[in-house]
Design a protein around this nucleic acid. Structure first.
Length: 530
RNA sequence: GCAGGCGUAGCUCAGUUGGUUAGAGCGCUGGUCUGUGGAACCAGAGGUCGGUGGUUCAAGUCCACCCGCCUGUACCA
């Protein structure tokens, strides 16, 4: 028993769930993505701004810690003055706080266009590609009520996807307007405060269209739905006609000719449509005795479609067709603060995971108009619209797609230790390489044989090693071995060919030509020197 | 949160109706190896069998609870 106390309960090295460590390949991939996004955002005229990861909880929005569920959704804690603080869960609310503090001063010019990226935190169940700490990249325009600001967000989203190497056709920016859905719900009798809960249930059901299909949504709008594990989700309890109308709206194909969805009330061609505004509406809507006329005359729906039409016109004018930016009445987006147009970027390709199962990445970014968010801090209305990219999720998708990060970055040049007594000489060689901006390191392990040192360099993905044994030293030379060339040698069967390549892969140069020779070797393999 | 499935070495997995000191492959470390990377051979390290409690003469194996992971679902700014 006594000897066991040597290692009593070994501390288990472990990471809290939903969090992840990131190695060189992932970090390099993230850098590359952030750089691509930043370039596009700056091209659009947005300027950088940074806010801290911690804010007062009440500034972040609705998630106030309460007794029952103190940390639901958001990580919160109390300051020593007992005020509640939280880790930010998005970048929009902190921006609203930032703007509200500066609006009307010389430190903020309206319309204010800014971008920022950083870690955000959500205390919720993690899943594949879903973490409790993840990177977001946002752009926002504050103080511009015009739809031109929204159209710009959509074009920005499309340009960013392409800058990230996602080909046109493999993504789509979907645009909807919260006013359209709000109008529909109002007309079918779900207006008013007393129906707020039901409206939420309906919107949630609509949001699941791409995942559950129209049958699943139909069930959720009605009685409810049972999933494959037997769990039952209670539905919104709409009647058949209400359900038909909601589904009918979702199915209207507005993507490719949205302008046609809005026709002026006084268009003579519409005489037979009772002065309505919707064109090509499904029978469920036009035939509805109860709601048909009201739907077609709804001012809210008309306003919403009018805004969508403006966005459509603006992006089309700039050359962005429906292959990149489409109007889609099924997009819901956040339930909380959006007040007008909402956008969502979806990846449209499917890929399989390592077990061959299809993985949907779905939405990798989104945003919308939130005219109420800044005004929470101020009496006056402040229009704002923004767009946000989930960098972490997008990175997971791009990695799975093979666009990112699978290949190791080239390592440093390794100077081997041949003669233990001459470490200083080798260190000097390293220093001369470093002085020439070449990544280089001395082998710091046990130098008892050269083979191990080559193995090490190989594992580091070093482009080459430098060797100087007694023979080279006597001739005033160093040996350079090209590991990248050498890597292919074992595959070569032909002896002459092998010897030729071998000679290319390993060569001696005068000691004072070391730096130049290494530089040439790196250039041959397209490795940047700093 | 709810439902279901799964937890044995760093990884992938064996482990009999409950029965002695829990195994294999890969990986890792060292050696053969003071002149050359992916090889070969040899040796070694590494396990509270996810945790705690219970049943039993005896638990990796049976039971309960907890934790973690996976799938679905709910919530999601």
């Amino acid at each position: 028993m006594a000897d066991k106390s040597n290692k009593p309960h070994k501390l288990k090295a472990r990471l809290p769930r939903g969090l992840t460590d990131r190695g060189p390949a992932e970090i390099a991939a993230t850098r590359q993505m952030v750089e691509a996004i930043r370039t596009v955002f700056e091209r659009y005229g947005f300027e950088p701004v940074e806010t801290p990861a911690i804010e007062y909880t009440d500034a972040l929005g609705k998630f106030l810690p309460d007794q029952d569920r103190p940390n639901e959704g958001v990580f919160s804690f109390q300051d020593d003055d007992e005020q509640w603080l939280s880790l930010r869960y998005d970048l929009t609310a902190p921006l609203a706080r930032y703007v509200a503090e500066r609006i009307g001063t010389e430190h903020l010019v309206l319309p204010y266009r800014s971008y920022r990226f950083g870690w955000v935190f959500r205390n919720e169940k993690p899943g594949p590609g879903r973490f409790r700490q993840f990177l977001q990249f946002d752009a926002d325009t504050v103080g511009a009520p015009t739809m031109a600001a929204d159209a710009e967000m959509c074009m920005l989203a499309a340009d960013t996807m392409e800058a990230l190497g996602i080909p046109r056709g493999s993504y789509v920016v979907k645009v909807n307007n919260r006013k359209v859905l709000d109008g529909v719900l109002e007309v079918i009798g779900l207006g008013g405060d007393e129906n707020a809960g039901k409206r939420l249930t309906v919107l949630r059901a609509i949001d699941k269209l791409d995942r559950l299909g129209s049958l699943g949504v139909k069930q959720l709008l009605g009685e409810g739905r049972k999933d494959e594990s037997g769990d039952f989700t209670k539905g919104a309890g709409l009647d058949a006609e209400q359900i038909d109308i909601v589904l009918g709206f979702l199915e209207i194909d507005v993507a490719h000719n949205p302008s046609a969805a809005l026709l002026p009330r006084d268009n003579p061609a519409l005489a037979n449509m009772k002065g309505g505004i919707l064109y090509r509406v499904p029978p469920a809507i036009s035939n509805s005795e109860r709601f048909g006329v009201a739907l077609q005359e709804s001012e809210v729906i008309r306003a919403g479609i009018g805004e969508l039409d403006q966005i459509r016109f603006l992006v089309e004018s700039s050359g962005y067709g429906a292959d990149r930016i489409e109007t889609n009445f099924a997009v819901v987006r956040g339930l909380e603060y959006y007040t007008g147009p909402v956008y969502e970027v979806e990846l449209t390709f499917e890929i399989n995971d390592e077990k061959g199962r299809p993985v949907r990445f779905g939405s990798v970014g989104g945003g919308g108009r939130y005219d109420g968010l800044v005004s929470r801090f101020r009496g006056e209305p402040v229009p704002a619209t923004g767009f946000s990219i989930g960098v972490s999720r997008l990175q997971a998708a791009l990695t799975a797609l093979g666009k990112l990060g699978s290949k190791a970055e080239p390592g440093p040049v390794v100077v081997t230790v041949f003669d233990k007594d001459r470490v200083a000489d080798y260190q000097k060689m390293v220093a001369s390489l470093r002085a020439a901006n070449i990544r280089a390191e001395l082998y710091l392990g046990n130098p008892k044989n050269i083979g191990n040192q080559l193995k090490y360099a190989d594992k580091r993905s070093s482009p080459c090693v430098v060797i100087q044994g007694g023979d080279e030293k006597a001739r005033g030379e160093v040996m350079i071995k090209d590991l990248i060339l050498g890597a292919g040698l074992t595959a070569i069967k032909d002896r002459d060919e092998y010897l030729k390549k071998q000679a290319e892969a390993q060569f001696a140069v005068k000691q004072d030509a070391l730096v130049e020779a290494v530089r040439k070797l790196l250039a041959r393999h397209n490795i940047k020197t700093s």
